[in-house]
């Protein structure tokens, strides 16, 4: 019962954000960048401007919709990169063991010891700000949890009879990892990936807020918040709505992750007869 609600609510919130991003050109009232009109600067929310306007008179509703595209791209793509890196390293380390495992473990510990945002900040400082750099920075710095999970799963799965049987039947190592281990560890990895996506959305907002992410005038929720700093008392709607968008997306992803965990957790599945 409970896992149903988490999954449904999380899924609904996340689906809402996806729809907003995909259909932004049709749902938006104005162009998010060009439609600046100082005549209508800092209008409060109303029937013409649902979420109000910013200091340049741009429609915040339209900018939030377009901002979803950036947040989703960053969240999904960077987390995919993280998952691929984490699974490759963790799975091979757990399965092979030995010096490779020691090396991967050391690398993981290093990543965990330094806050990933600091790492991302450093990478962003070297690269030019922009979407590609953001994807690289966030995609290279958040794989340690996935790696840990993949390694632990590989360690426990490799002693299972079916993995032994595959070895005895002459399967190569790569085939064993891809067909015997990977499918059986996907559950927790999907959960971590979903939760990590929420983290990536937040990290994007933070970096953009600090001016190291998406550069104005392109609308990202983080850069919108950054721009709104000075009007936070006079025109709070300029910061409230991008903030709400971040909140809804991250909440949706976390609920989705929890819901998936409940479904994919072997303990909650039907007990063996």
């Amino acid at each position: 019962m409970k896992f149903g609600t988490n999954l449904m609510l999380g899924g609904a919130l996340f689906a809402m954000v996806i729809i907003a991003g995909i259909f932004a050109p049709w749902l938006a009232h104005t162009d998010p960048v060009m439609a600046a009109d100082l005549m209508y600067a800092e209008e409060p929310p109303g029937s013409a401007f649902w979420f109000g306007t910013d200091a340049q008179g741009r429609d915040i509703y339209s900018r939030v919709l377009y901002g979803a595209r950036i947040s989703l791209t960053v969240g999904i793509v960077s987390q995919l990169i993280n998952t691929v890196i984490g699974v490759c390293l963790g799975l091979s380390a757990g399965y092979w063991g030995g010096w490779w495992d020691d090396f991967v473990n050391g690398l993981t510990n290093l990543m965990l010891a330094v806050p990933s945002l600091i790492f991302a900040l450093a990478i962003m400082a070297i690269l030019n700000p922009g979407l590609t750099s953001l994807l690289i920075a966030l995609g290279l710095t958040n794989w340690s949890f996935t790696c840990r999970i993949a390694r632990a799963s590989a360690l426990s799965l490799k002693s299972q009879g079916y993995v032994q049987a595959a070895k005895v039947l002459g399967y190569g190592d790569l085939r064993i990892m891809l067909t015997q281990l990977l499918p059986n560890m996907l559950g927790p990895i999907i959960v971590i990936g979903t939760l990590g996506m929420g983290g990536a959305v937040l990290a994007e907002a933070t970096l953009s807020f600090l001016g190291l992410g998406i550069r104005p005038p392109f609308p990202s929720w983080g850069s919108m918040l950054s721009d709104a700093r000075e009007q936070i008392t006079t025109a709070p709607w300029i910061s409230i709505f991008p903030g709400l968008a971040i909140f809804v997306t991250v909440l949706g992803l976390n609920l989705l992750g929890d819901g998936l965990r409940d479904i994919l957790d072997p303990h909650s599945r039907s007990r063996r007869a």
Binding site: Q160, G161, Y162, A165, V168, T179, Q180, R272
Partner: peptide
């Protein structure tokens, strides 16, 4: 070839 003890963990569930 080999036949394993535990029929539950010796088959890939997927």
């Amino acid at each position: 070839q080999m036949v394993f003890q535990d029929p539950f963990s010796s088959l890939n569930p997927r």
